[in-house]
Computed example of a mutant assay.
Amino acid sequence: MNWLRKLLPGNTARADRAAVSNLYAAILKRARNPDIFGDLGFADTMDGRTGALAIYSSLVTTRLSAISQPGRALSSRLTDRVFDDIDAGLRETGVGDASIARKVRTIGERFVGLGIAVNEAFLTSDPHVSVSDILDRNGLTGGTGTSNVADDIIDARRDLEAQSDDSLLSGQLDW
């Protein structure tokens, strides 16, 4: 009977939508944690908030992409969801249709750049220093906030790596 469920349309799509929604909710919860904003964390600005979202999203999408083809597909759908939300947020703030594409593209380029840089930082001999440099260079934090955020990013990656592939593919993200 399991083979029949796989053939029926909707079951897989529904499960994938639920997985993307659950993963995105967990990313937002981590990226919007008030304990990592302000003087002891990310700057509480549009750049700081989109930077936090970019970094935590990239940790998850990179981990998913390393799993398998289903992980890469889920990673792609999760990225689409993140950018759909960014687009909707910009529209809510009054950004007009004429400039929305340009603004989303600018945010997207920064988003991808931060994600790549942070993931590459984990390949260095001292990820804490490398992540801190990225945060400072991009003006995302200041003062003691840089070290606190770098610690949180490293903890998030460690938690993410400890989770099973199956739990992530099903949308469970415990960090």
Results as ranks from 00 to 15, higher is better:
Ser21Gln: 14
Asp47His: 03
Ile154Glu: 04
Gly115Tyr: 01
Lys103Val: 15
Arg30Glu: 06
Ala52Val: 00
Ser164Val: 08
Ile67Gln: 08
Arg105Asn: 06
Trp175Tyr: 13
Pro9Asn: 07
Ser170Asn: 10
Ile100Ser: 10
Leu173Ser: 11
Leu135Arg: 03
Thr12Asp: 14
Ser147Ile: 10
Phe83Pro: 00
Gly139Gln: 13
Leu140Cys: 13
Phe111Gln: 03
Val82Gly: 00
Ser147Arg: 14
Asp35Arg: 14
Asp80Val: 02
Ser130Arg: 09
Phe122Trp: 11
Leu8Ala: 15
Ala19Leu: 09
Ala156Val: 02
Ala26Lys: 03
Ala101Cys: 02
Ala88Glu: 09
Ser65Thr: 13
Thr144Leu: 15
Val112Ala: 09
Asp174Glu: 08
Asp39Asn: 11
Gly38Lys: 04
Thr141Ala: 05
Arg110Pro: 07
Ala98Tyr: 01
Asn22Ala: 14
Gly94Leu: 09
Leu4Thr: 08
Ser68Gly: 10
Ser57Glu: 06
Leu135Thr: 09
Gln163Pro: 12
Val131Tyr: 06
Tyr56Glu: 05
Arg91Gln: 12
Thr93Cys: 09
Arg49Asn: 07
Arg110Lys: 09
Ser57Gln: 00
Arg102Thr: 15
Pro70Gln: 02
Ser99Thr: 15
Ala88Gly: 12
Phe111Asp: 04
Leu140Lys: 07
Trp175Ala: 03
Phe42Arg: 03
Thr79Asn: 08
Ala117His: 07
Asp47Val: 04
Thr124Cys: 05
Arg81Cys: 12
Met1Asn: 06
Ala162Val: 03
Arg102Leu: 13
Gly10Thr: 03
Gly96Ala: 11
Thr61Asp: 08
Thr141His: 06
Thr146Phe: 09
Val104Met: 04
Gly108Asp: 05
Gly51Phe: 05
Ser147Met: 12
Met1Arg: 11
Gly38Ala: 06
Gly145Gln: 00
Asp126Pro: 06
Asn148Tyr: 04
Leu168Ile: 07
Lys103Ser: 06
Leu90Met: 15
Arg158His: 14
Ile36Gly: 00
Asp155Lys: 11
Leu64Phe: 05
Arg158Gly: 10
Val118Asp: 08
Pro70Leu: 05
Gly96Gln: 13
Gln69Tyr: 00
Thr62Pro: 05
Leu78Glu: 01
Gly94His: 07
Tyr56Gln: 05
Thr50Tyr: 01
Ser75Lys: 00
Ala66Pro: 08
Val95Ser: 08
Gly143Leu: 14
Ile107Pro: 04
Gly51Gln: 06
Ser167Trp: 02
Ser68Met: 07
Ser68Tyr: 04
Asp159Gly: 15
Ala156Ile: 07
Gly71Met: 02
Val82Asp: 02
Val60Leu: 06
Arg5Trp: 07
Ser65Trp: 01
Asp84Gly: 13
Ala88Phe: 14
Ala43Trp: 01
Leu168Lys: 03
Ser21Ile: 06
